[in-house]
Design a protein around this nucleic acid. Structure first.
Lengths: 230, 230
DNA sequence: GAGTACGAGTTTGCATGCAATCATGTGCTC
DNA sequence: GAGCACATGATTGCATGCAAACTCGTACTC
């Protein structure tokens, strides 16, 4: 997927009343998560307001929401910038996601419906196809869907909400981790174990496997982070 | 701690520029967490604005922040109300905190400094004194400090942040859980095990004990919730 | 030349105003 | 009396205006 980085004001999307703040927050969140707005990018109220065709008031409210989510950082009297995570913060986020992945996986083994297990199995097979085709983009997409499906199968709204929020914070830093064939193959092997443990509903095993899998993800992200590609 | 529920506009606290939104958010958060503003209470922009001595603009920004934290719920064109958790949502939050408590405890066993272990030990002893004196208020306060100290001893900023946010969401529902002497004694016994596992740095044990302890907390909260006291 | 004081332009923080939407009460219809 | 249409007041959503704080370039001092 490509993004046009046009300098001209983008096609003004007229919003119905009562949606300017929501529109701005969703739009900015998407741009940050997908990397269109890189970390440390300054977000001027006037500039973005003109781009989005809204005034500063709803935009400032959107900034506050994104700041609460940790996606932007607001300095008093100096405006908002896209949050740039330090190495320690990135590691902390990966560890948190590891804990959530593991705990949710264990819960999911107890609570997942037959349909939810089937759904994960189907997604896994789809991911295999993308892996065989070396289609990194779709591999990443389906990969994330698998982890979300397992988390949601825990049937715990708080875990799902926090997981999504924290995953969004570091999504920007995960995209390129599996470019190395060796790591990619390793991740695939781990996913085989994940699927097996989930289908057999072995909670303790799934917890351990998901925890270790997230650690692999962190090692990959750390390589990229240390090489300052991101 | 008591709060004056005066009907006259409360002592206007003149804020320095650039702090109106922060002031309003902190103040409202405190009022919600401590139960001064009960769940389902409507929060009118004009009313609160007059009470706090600020205009609607910074107040609306504060509402958005609290909504992102899950403390208030904003209905389009109808304003904000203090979030009222359903039984399922409350249980979900307790389960999430159980997972965070357990995971953080295990991390803390690996990473806690000698000073941090000593601090928890000291807090534990202080809690014992409050327990012996049946001082519920201070018992609760020190109890929370113990759990926070263990979580922070994991040295993971993301876990600490999420833990605080989620704990704040359900604090309102936890205050009265241990009024029954039997449950209170049980919680104290669990805390003995918590301290022992932490001091001996037995990560897997501490995870299990903290997880079970949080489950006890949920059972207590559920009794209160089902009796519709809160 | 380095460092500081200053000032014009820019940006943020907040208050206010207006239009759209909602809430509520009254009168009308059946 | 029940139910609905409508009007009026209240509330929210957003745009705009103004003052405070910041940025950055220039001139001045040492």
């Amino acid at each position: 997927m490509q993004y046009e980085m046009e300098t001209s004001p983008e096609p003004s999307i007229p919003q119905q009343r009562g949606r300017a703040t929501l529109f701005a927050a969703d739009r900015l969140r998407e741009m940050i998560v997908e990397g269109v707005l890189a970390p440390s990018t300054r977000i001027s109220e006037r500039m973005i307001g003109e781009r989005f065709g809204i005034s500063r008031t709803p935009l400032r409210e959107a900034f506050k929401v994104l700041a609460a989510e940790g996606l932007v950082t607001i300095a008093p009297n100096r405006g908002a910038v896209v949050t740039k995570l330090s190495g320690a913060e990135l590691q902390a986020a990966f560890e948190l996601l590891a804990a959530l992945d593991g705990s949710a996986g264990e819960m999911a083994c107890h609570r997942a419906t037959v349909e939810e297990v089937a759904k994960v199995t189907q997604l896994h097979d789809a991911m295999l196809v993308h892996y065989a085709a070396r289609d990194l983009q779709n591999y990443f997409r389906v990969n994330k869907e698998i982890h979300l499906a397992i988390v949601d199968a825990a049937h715990n709204s708080a875990v799902s909400r926090v997981y999504r929020a924290e995953a969004a914070r570091i999504d920007r830093y995960r995209y390129g981790g599996n470019r190395e064939p060796l790591n990619w193959a390793r991740a695939m092997r781990e996913h085989e174990h994940i699927l097996e443990a989930f289908r057999e509903r072995q909670g303790a095993v799934l917890r351990e496997v998901l925890f270790a899998h997230r650690r692999t993800g962190w090692l990959n992200a750390k390589i990229m982070f240390d090489s300052e590609v991101i």
